[in-house]
């Protein structure tokens, strides 16, 4: 069976220690996390996690059921990629010379990114989008050996339509 990537939306109690419980479960049972994001929801009693993980159907099922057993986990949903808006955020600092500047600016425009810091030798670029788009931009920057440093946030995922994860 294939180790495909999947998206989990998880509603948890907004208590300290919840992140350790969830991440501990993954490491203890040998499941891989590609990314994990957690933040408070509109209701301060709850936090919402978006977890991108990898595994076959067996692992996928086990992760959902094992997560559901945790007392502070209120809801777990395997999100359908076709009905989900998935976004990541990238901040990337590039080395810049007068010669490379036009090329970079053009790339930023193509990727619908934003230049958020600019000086003679470097630039910080902000890009939001699907994980594959961010990876494509990183590849471009890597090829030209421009990366000074980068920081990529875990993916956020929300279902399309009226339904929400909490109810």
């Amino acid at each position: 069976m294939q180790k495909e990537q999947f998206i989990l939306g998880v509603i948890v109690s907004n208590h300290f220690g919840v992140l350790t419980r969830v991440s501990g479960l993954f490491s203890r049972r040998g499941y891989n996390i590609d990314s994990l994001n957690v933040s408070e929801t509109e209701n301060p009693e709850y936090s919402r996690m978006t977890i991108i993980a990898r595994g076959d159907d067996y692992v996928k099922n086990q992760i959902v059921k094992q997560l559901e057993k945790l007392h502070e986990v209120k809801k777990v949903e395997l999100m359908d990629p076709d009905r989900t808006v998935l976004r990541e955020h990238l901040l990337i600092k590039l080395r810049v010379t007068p010669a490379t500047r036009p090329e970079i600016t053009e790339a930023v425009n193509i990727f619908r990114g934003k230049v958020v810091d600019f000086n003679a030798d470097s630039m910080i670029i902000e890009i939001t989008g699907e994980p594959s788009k961010l990876s494509a931009f990183i590849d471009f920057a890597k090829q030209n050996d421009m990366i000074i440093e980068m920081c990529r946030a875990g993916a956020l995922a929300v279902n399309r339509g009226l339904q929400n994860l909490g109810n």
Partner: peptide, 8 residues
């Protein structure tokens, strides 16, 4: 009684 045991 434990759903996680099914198919484990």
């Amino acid at each position: 009684i434990d759903a996680a045991e099914i198919d484990k």
